[in-house]
Structures are given as structure tokens and as C-alpha cells.
Design a protein around this nucleic acid. Sequence first.
DNA 1: CTGTAGATCCACCGAACGGTGGAGGCGCGA
DNA 2: TCGCGCCTCCACCGTTCGGTGGATCTACAG
Lengths: 206, 206
Amino acid sequence: MIRLVIVDDHPIVRGGLRDTFADAEDIIVVGEAGDGAEGVERAKGLAADVVLMDLRMPGMDGVAATAALRERVPDSRVLILTTFDSENDVLPAIEAGAIGYLLKDALPDELMRAVRAAARGESVLAPSVTQHLMGHVRRPGAGTLTDREKEVLQLVANGSSNREAATALFIGEASIKTHLQHIYDKLGVRDRASAVAEGYRRRLLT
Amino acid sequence: MIRLVIVDDHPIVRGGLRDTFADAEDIIVVGEAGDGAEGVERAKGLAADVVLMDLRMPGMDGVAATAALRERVPDSRVLILTTFDSENDVLPAIEAGAIGYLLKDALPDELMRAVRAAARGESVLAPSVTQHLMGHVRRPGAGTLTDREKEVLQLVANGSSNREAATALFIGEASIKTHLQHIYDKLGVRDRASAVAEGYRRRLLT
DNA sequence: CTGTAGATCCACCGAACGGTGGAGGCGCGA
DNA sequence: TCGCGCCTCCACCGTTCGGTGGATCTACAG
């Protein structure tokens, strides 16, 4: 039996979730909380296996609560269930130690499978969330720009167009475009502006 | 005859400058001051043509004094004479309205030529100061992004297209383009990629 | 010696961007 | 009250960029 705690500041949402899991024979909702701090207490006191956590809440938010839980109740798994899938929400949550990240448009069936997966220690991510992670998970071999690619990126950061970068490096414009495509792939971005941003974040640029 | 006022908190320096200009037949030191506020008063009361201004002073510093002078005595020219040539000193002084910027290692002869040039309304800059200005040709008011502009730049750094940034901020795409044009102007760049680079260099972005 | 990684180059296309020159509204301080 | 800074929006246009799917060459390691 999976012991589940629901943390969400909306009573309506909590109600809906409780109903959803009422049908499941292997899942029991042992407690609820309306904010992060309360959620941590409940999860600890009730020995939760899985905590279903909203992100945006008054007081202690979901990320902080997740981090606190990971520290104080390491055996419980935190499954994020929220409306937002922007990078700014996803990444901190994962970093804080959430094992899964679902969106609130998930079907009840998906939700239950996700809770069971989380209880087994498996990771479940909503498809759109996976996208965000792709670019930030450093695949082996990826995330490392070649010297040439770094040169190109630096030139772009300094305001060079493809043509100008080509002239500066004594190569053709086509090669600059190819290098840039490789850079985009490796950094998980789609355009030169965010490539430059990633370059600074990863300290590849000065 | 050029009426000169010396503003410096060190009596020794003031003495040295007075001596220097004692030889000049077309320059007369009509007054001295030990801090910015006093300097503004003297320059105004004595109808100074040129004010030789130190930057680091107790009380009102050279930048503030320069700004005050430009406003209250528009006819007088402020010539900065200081030991420091870092960007953080140079740029604010120029923006405040100084017509020239010399370092204290200048020879007496250079100094006098500079005062005469300033009196004629010409700009005189120490060579190392010129360097700093090259990359930062900033008109007054430039160099500071508004909150909105910072938001836009951050979104662009995170990979947003103009359209996506517009959606995120609940405004039209045209407004994003306008904001970006202003950002380019202020940062002295021509495209989003180098704007992002400048944003990181100036610690406007995370 | 053969696979792999890196660097170079090509063509085509639609979409996005940058440049220019506006315009109106709002709030704040001189 | 007037001006200024800021934010918002518009149209037009040429240029650049990004995406795709190739290709050749070199150097190096297995």
C-alpha cells in the first residue's frame, strides 16, 4: 500500500485528487496540506511514501518544500503536480530533488501510474517537461564545445554576423552555419542569442 | 583671460596647481575649494570659465559637483583632474557633463593646454581615458536598461523569439521589437546575441 | 585500415530579425 | 502646465538566420 500525502493550496484540487485515488486499491491518501511547511510536517508524521506537491503556494513554496523533504524525510518521493512547465519552474524543482513532474492536465490514470512509479523510485515526467530537460541534461560527450565552436560562439557574442565571423576565421559562411548548428545541438538551444546566454552560464565565454 | 577655479580636497595639490598656472599669462586662478559643494559656489560666485575638478572628495564628490555645475553654471567648463582612470570613474564623470578628463601624472604643460582647450569648449582626454570611452560611447541616460527592457532581454537570453516574449509579457510583438531597439542602442550592439553577451558582462542577466 | 570526430563547404526555403520613422498614452517632476 | 521618460503599437522592407540533408577531407584511435 502506497501512503500518499497531497500538498496543494486549493481545497478544490485536493478534493479532486482525493477522489481520484479513492478508486485505487494500492494507494491511500493519508494526509493533506495547504502549504509547503505543513506538507513537510504531514509527510514526516504520516510516513508518506509519495508526496504530491504543487509548486505555487503561499508561504513555503513547492521547491523549498521539496528540498526540505528530501533532507528530513529522505525515504519519501516527491512528485510535482502543477500547471506550469516553464524552465524556471521545472529545473529548480528537479534540482531540489523531485522524482517526477506532472502537469495538471494529466489524466487520472496517468496520475496513478505516476504515483506507483514514484513509489518504486522511478522517474516520471510530463512530455513537455522532458523537452525542457533535454537541453540541460548533459549527455555524455555533449555540453563540450570544440575549440573552433567556442571561437565561433565568442565571435557571435561579440556581435559578428555569420558572414563577419566567416571572414574573421578565414572560412566560408556555410561553415559558420554548420558550427552554429552543432553549438545549438550541444547547448540545447535554438538560436544564437540563447546560445550566447548558455555560453556565459557555462563559463565558456568572456 | 581664463578664469580658473581649482577644486581638490588636498591643499598640497591645490598649491601645486596654483604654482603651475602662475606662469601662464592667459590663465588666472580666481578661487579654490576643498569639496564639491564649495566648488560649485566658488565657480558660480567667481564666474569661472574653467573648473579643475578632483573626483574623490569628502562630501559632494566630483561627479555630483560636475552635474550641479552643469546645471547651475552652464557657461563654465569642468575639467576632471584625478588619479584614477577606471571605467567606473571615467564614465559617470563624462555623463555628468565634464568636458575633459586628465590624470594627475599630466605634465604642467599638458595641463595648461588642456585648460585653454576646455575654455574654448574643446574636449581633452588623457590617452588611457580615451580607451575606456571607445567601447562605451554612451549618451547621457544610456547604459541603464529599464526594468521592462531587462525583462525582455532576459526572455531573449532564455531563447524566446520576439513573438514568444510578447506572449510572455502580454504585449504585442511590435513592442518587443521596440524594446529591443532601445536595448541595442543603450548597449551599443546590433543584434540580440551580442545584447545578451553585454547583458551578462554588465551583470544584468542571470 | 576502418570507424569516428572535427572542420570545411553547398543549396534551398520560410521564418525571424533589424532598421526606420513614426504615433499615442501615462505618470512624474520641473 | 509642460516636457520627458517609459511603454505601447503600427507598417514596410531588405537582410539574416535557422532547418534540412547532404558532401569531402584530415587526423587519430581502435
